[in-house]
Design a protein around this nucleic acid. Sequence first.
DNA 1: GCCCTTTAATTCAAGCCTCAAAAAAAATCG
DNA 2: CGATTTTTTTTGAGGCTTGAATTAAAGGGC
Lengths: 407, 407
Amino acid sequence: MTTVLRSDDMRRRNRNLIMEIVRRKGAISRSAIAQTAALSPATVSTISNDLIAEGVLVAQGNGSAASSGRGRPSVHLSINPEFRHAVLIILKIGALNVSIIDYAGAVVAHQDFHIDMANIRAEEFRRTLIAEVRQTWDTSGLDEAQLARISVAIQGTTDTAGVHMLRSPMTPLTDVPIGPWLEEAFGAPVRLANDCDLIARALNWRDPERYSDNFAAILLAHGVGMGLFLRGQIINGTKSSGTEFGHMLHRPDGALCRCGSRGCIEANAGDYAILRRYRGDPADSAPASRVSAREIAAIAEAGRAGNERALDALAAAGRALGSGLAGIYALVDPFRIAFVGHGAAAFSLMEPALRQTLENSNARAARDVPIDLFPDEMPLVREGCCIDALSDIDARQAAKVNDFARA
Amino acid sequence: MTTVLRSDDMRRRNRNLIMEIVRRKGAISRSAIAQTAALSPATVSTISNDLIAEGVLVAQGNGSAASSGRGRPSVHLSINPEFRHAVLIILKIGALNVSIIDYAGAVVAHQDFHIDMANIRAEEFRRTLIAEVRQTWDTSGLDEAQLARISVAIQGTTDTAGVHMLRSPMTPLTDVPIGPWLEEAFGAPVRLANDCDLIARALNWRDPERYSDNFAAILLAHGVGMGLFLRGQIINGTKSSGTEFGHMLHRPDGALCRCGSRGCIEANAGDYAILRRYRGDPADSAPASRVSAREIAAIAEAGRAGNERALDALAAAGRALGSGLAGIYALVDPFRIAFVGHGAAAFSLMEPALRQTLENSNARAARDVPIDLFPDEMPLVREGCCIDALSDIDARQAAKVNDFARA
DNA sequence: GCCCTTTAATTCAAGCCTCAAAAAAAATCG
DNA sequence: CGATTTTTTTTGAGGCTTGAATTAAAGGGC
């Protein structure tokens, strides 16, 4: 069922549109905004002057930008970095990275911590997390009133609201209320998101031409995860965020997975699975708990040098990924894939098996699906987390102004 | 990227909202509309009087509806059946059903034709189709200017635009331009849609409480198809409509499918697959070309009486369906399923195997997913086709009025 | 039979919002 | 220094929704 539309909704949406354009372009004149947004100059003027008055945007005399000829010079608008700040937290096995960013997305403070969550109790985790975030915040020298949002990227699943961390390979703890913890400690809205979802979000942000309606980001690391966009919207569980692509069944009674099941895609394409097969360990042997990027790189190297076991292990990974994709492609026509993470560095050796698997499937046309590689996932996770935080601040500010005007 | 919003968009959307409410409620007063839509009585008054002036709605003195007490009696608004008419065409193996409906969705003419498309040439198909539609139209005695829309339900896939029929089990013809044929012959907009998608649409229309954000309709007939809603939107291929759920791989090198591959879900759960296994025919024997509903019912009957082969065949179907669902549930958390078609009448005997398969999968929680049964798919296909046609007429009319006002 | 109460629908003025056109601002060019 | 050019702002018009006031059309009570 559609929902009512009032005139302030109109303003809010056009305002968000302008913010999106400014964020993407960095610095842009009012008239250029009007053109890209298909809004009239008058409207852009009104809205952007409001934004400047609020302190959201700043106008900077065109400055260096070659006073490009005749006419009144355009004034470039840009995000006011000082307007608000956000905390980005990236939680992954063994590590906790905290960044403080300004409203323009620049990192103003950053610290990396080690954390072993394998045997941690919830209360200890809570204290550690808060202490390390606070410590990082303090190095920024900012007033806490400046903090408008905390975004957390996690390996694992969250509830849809992005409040609790349901399950994660980092820890045996389940249903961890990270959201409420941080909200209570810092008084700012908090949202958790799955790392793969954030990678997909980042790709969509970076290059909306390529990554718009339908595409997936597949993280090839210790585990295998997927961030999926369909019809321009991110698809995550109805109850939890993050698709469990890695735990789709590839081969009944196949190799043993970290999750305890057998035959998952991950049990064939995750780091530990590739290593296990390369070593010739039995398929039901316990997954290694940690595999370094170097080890995977070494296997790829061996494969390129012609090592049969390496080639076999990587081909198996390719087949598992291909069969999972074929399943999805039966539901939705083939779409672009980005393989992300250090597994992507070995992808060229998985690719033939993957494409062959697609060709043998019912989604034959998927054989030629475009695939991009991003061996380092961290910049994408950070970028996704960043845009998640900032666009949320934008939206909240727009809603606040609206409510204020109404009251 | 979001898009601009102007004040006429607002009006169009609120108008559509009102139409949706009137369509769903059948006859409803202005004040009741205002309440359900969360619009002010003033706005509803303005818009609905416009609609009445255009002839879209009619006002009927509350009539029978017990003059419910004090106060000025409410006037019920309802769709004006005479405003426009639509042609609904349902194409399935061996049959071509044509209905003419009025603007309120009532069938004013209907004819069923037999058609064998196994060895038909495109030109002959075109002529037959047009002739039979025209013949049915003529029995209605309506003026052709009354025809505002043609909606076609097909077994098979279409392009996303809903213009060409790409592939269908009905015929070896591919890429059949049914849309352009009919548009040229009747001068009304035409859209083709996959039958499973329409079934899902119908469920969403009938019972939006139950079938809203995430659910799937699975058609169990000769083939196995799926209409899938995620986040309230129908998901079909990026290039073709209709998910190919039936051709997801269930078991590598498994039973022979109609499509030529092996191990598809359909090759285990389609009519012919159940019959084949029941008879004890080898799994690679050629699929029967047609199986009647009675045959499936007989197998179910035998199963209920304890026949082992029948139970085995139906359990195999349940396992195949369960494994396909488990795959989807790994991507999206478990959602409600409606099994539709005569296979649904035998579902109780597939259910234990299906739920067991889910329980053994990684989507363990999916074991308790709610499942509804609709043994007769035709009313749903018709209803989906009907609402598809009518809501399109509504939207076009709203856009036309808007454009007119702007010019 | 008349007046009061109650509920539905309409009218009206006000407040937003966007837009086109005109005006103002701020440069360059000759 | 005035003409030209381009950007931005101002202004007036028109569309939309809304709350409040008004009108319409009943039933209830005396």
